[in-house]
Design a protein around this nucleic acid. Structure first.
Lengths: 330, 330
DNA sequence: TTGTACGCGTTATCAA
DNA sequence: TTGATAACGCGTACAA
């Protein structure tokens, strides 16, 4: 079923059918009615590929996140979808598994689809990725980071500062022998930024010394958190607090302590990152940093939308901030 | 940059460039080298819309899930991506928010893109949706359900049976005054199937009587679980066990009990559904049903892939099963 | 092994 | 307010 079939059925030209669908105000009432009828009768479905060929607009927004499953990024994707779908855009989704080479492959493949906009979930890319995107001349928003240089638009927050706020909190409650425990997957620059923030805080606050426990190749799971807690006990027996790079690890560690009968925060304080749903409900409840994953998605989508429409944007860089959520675990 | 630009640069015809990209074995070594060089120099990115027009293949797989954020469906999407992306397909994602009308809109919009395959996450659709899909004549796989009638392919498990298995487990441990607590959003047919399984079990096992607590309009959150637990105490003070329709509710309820000092399973037993990461780590650990979200995605993707390639499939309906995971909470 | 002609379904442009 | 025509970039079919 093509537009021509509908046109024949309605006794008009294909161009008129196109107008009914895209600029109905330019078409007469009677003709418009006949066309709509024909569309329904023939179950006509517009061919977007042809539309894209002719108009050079795809109606697609492509988004790349580090990982889809069990992640806070799913909330961002949900928000992207919530904004873009009502505006008539479709969402092409990919995950780079924290691997910049994979991201490059994805970007290359997505650009072939001629997306009207692109959402990336970090400011770290290969040079080739950067070149590809700049060559495509489409609006891009980089999210979940906060850097001085970015391609086009940026929405996120500073992980370095967030880590500092957690450290300030620990110190204000009297903890000074603080461990940082997190993953250091090559591509997880946010976790690295938190580690940077931790290190800076140890110096600035004149804490005892750095105590860093980095996991490599461990999945983001509560089991990894429990395992890490055991390593904290073994390697830093004098520690009085642990800052985990994710609530998932922190919760695994906290529940492990509960099971062992280790008092939190009596024997050791714990803080996480992300403010997952479970964090408020744990007993003891988990101190963490809330990061507004949905806000990042919504803000990024609206900013991108403005760019895609050629509207001026007040600021090309928006800090959605974060919030320390002090709870019982510290 | 078009294929013709690359051809001119390499001193060949556009068709040869196309061959280098799609059937390199048919092209001579020297010509092939020149073409590849030109592609790199010009930063050529193939136009998939044009490719789709000419070949009638889009390289797109469209997937619709109930909700993206904080859900077990994200694991299914991850698995879909893991299978399809290496095969050269791109993933178009949408969420229907458990609303069949929204699903219809999404299907209509996705079909305009000419996807080579479609993944749905239930067997419940409007009649118009069904007609649209059948009219499109593309492979479809319906997931997360188990029904006698389906459109083309089906991958899932029986929620009715899963509920029965939980009930059998409760009874085998001596519980007989069992509450079912779950959401009844209009479009959540899986939760409804679990309720059906519960009701059938109450009859078959000759239990005391039905005790059903249905939440409407509550988000899938631990807070809702805690709230529900209070309602159980108020409305069914004699209950000795609660079967929640999701681990999220169950965990919220369990942690609420821990906080109140209500012994689980001493005072009341709890079981959930889904085997989320946190379920094994809670203290007490949560009895649940493991449902293999990743398996559903992988299996569905491979089945759809076979259909898309025109290969014969051994079975058009695959039961990935489920597993009772008895833990400390019951 | 390489090249030519044609058509896919739509929209932009211009004319009526 | 409506229609005719050309063009988008590529793959298929066929020819050389």
């Amino acid at each position: 079923m093509t537009m021509t079939d509908v046109a024949t059925r309605a006794g008009v030209s294909a161009q008129t059918v196109s107008r009914v669908l895209r600029q109905p105000e330019l078409v007469g009432d009677e003709v418009s009615r006949r066309v709509r009828e024909a569309i329904l009768e023939l179950q006509y479905v517009p061919n977007f590929a042809a539309s894209q060929m002719a108009s050079n607009r795809s109606g697609i927004v492509a988004a790349i996140i580090p990982t889809i499953s069990a992640s806070i990024f799913a909330d961002t994707v949900q928000a992207l979808s919530d904004v873009f779908v009502p505006e008539g855009y479709q969402l092409l989704l990919g995950n780079n598994e924290y691997d910049l080479e994979k991201e490059e492959e994805l970007v290359r493949s997505f650009l072939g689809r001629g997306p009207d906009g692109l959402v990336l979930s970090s400011t770290h890319h290969t040079e080739a990725t950067r070149a590809l995107i700049l060559g495509a001349k489409i609006p891009v928003v980089e999210t979940w980071d906060w850097e001085e240089t970015y391609l086009d638009l940026m929405v996120g927050h500073s992980n370095v500062k967030a880590a500092r706020v957690v450290m300030d909190h620990f110190v204000s409650r009297g903890y000074r022998r603080i461990v940082f425990a997190g993953v250091t997957n090559a591509g997880d620059f946010r976790a690295k930024a938190r580690l940077t923030g931790y290190r800076a805080a140890v110096k600035a606050l004149e804490l005892d010394r750095e105590r860093v426990l980095t996991l490599t190749g461990k999945p983001l799971s509560m089991a990894s958190g429990a395992e890490t807690m055991n390593r904290v006990f073994a390697e830093f027996p004098d520690a009085d607090a642990v800052f985990f790079s994710s609530d998932v690890f922190a919760a695994g560690a906290l529940l492990h302590c509960v099971r062992l009968g280790v008092s939190v925060p009596g024997d050791i304080a714990i803080a996480g990152f992300g403010d997952f749903d479970f964090s408020a409900h744990l007993v003891p409840s988990l101190t963490t940093v809330s990061v507004h994953a949905g806000d990042i998605g919504r803000t990024a989508a609206n900013l991108l939308l403005a760019r895609m429409r050629g509207e001026a944007v007040a600021s090309s860089r928006i800090d959605v901030g974060f919030e320390l959520v002090p709870r019982e675990s510290s």
